[in-house]
Amino acid sequence: MSKVIVVTSGKGGVGKTTSAAAIGAGLALRGHKTVVIDFDVGLRNLDMIMGCERRVVFDFINVIQGDAKLKQALIKDRRVDTLSILPTSQTRDKDALTQEGVEKVLGELREEFDYIVCDSPAGIERGAQLAMYFADEAIVVTNPEVSSVRDSDRVLGLLNSRTRKAEEDGTIPAHLLLTRYDAKRIESGEMMKVEDVLEILAIPLLGIVPESTAVLRASNTGTPVVHDETSGAGRAYRDAVARLAGDSVEMKIAGDEKPGLFQRLFGRTA
């Protein structure tokens, strides 16, 4: 059975696209047929983060408007063959995305994919609402600071009222993904503690992704950070994906590994 998962946050720049790319790639690495969709119309970014920007031909809006078939717009990832990307339009205005159009495309994708990961735009307006409306589950990306937590709370309100799942069941399963976690700043009291964020938002924790230079490196090269197993962020996303898929994995805050001399000399393959 297929599952539509929206990655959302309210606040901008907290790590939605980074997370959608990493989780999509992570699910695909586990063998699930996965597609990641960019819902951020006008600000195409997912293609860069996933490294397929040179191959974009058609986009989500072309498909909705009947200018291209879904099959033509899907880009196959070159690293993981179970992964595809549906890029958004760089040029159209946001109104080109319609609820009927989104429903039709998601319906077609459900026939082919196990997981459909929707990268939401920031905010709580129409674009964000369209990205969440047909979701079966939500991942709320939050940074441990007040404005992000506050926005996440508002998004949770929307998720539990303005989604089809909530209209049917009264509620939608939502997971908290805490990103840009900075142990030093939490210790010094500048950033909120995990327990405090959890107490306020009261949804289950999917993972804690540390602030990591590996994320910038990953976006520079267009390789979702989940491929970088030496980075704390990469491993945190792997664990989060495992939990999402139903495994129970101990919650730990991963740091970056420094490769040892042996590893540097002989590569990482044991």
Binding site: R54, R55, V56, F58, K69, Q72
Partner: peptide, 12 residues
């Protein structure tokens, strides 16, 4: 058939 068309792009 419209479906039998496959367009790929590679920018360099």
């Amino acid at each position: 058939d419209r479906d039998a068309v496959d367009i790929r792009m590679e920018r360099d």
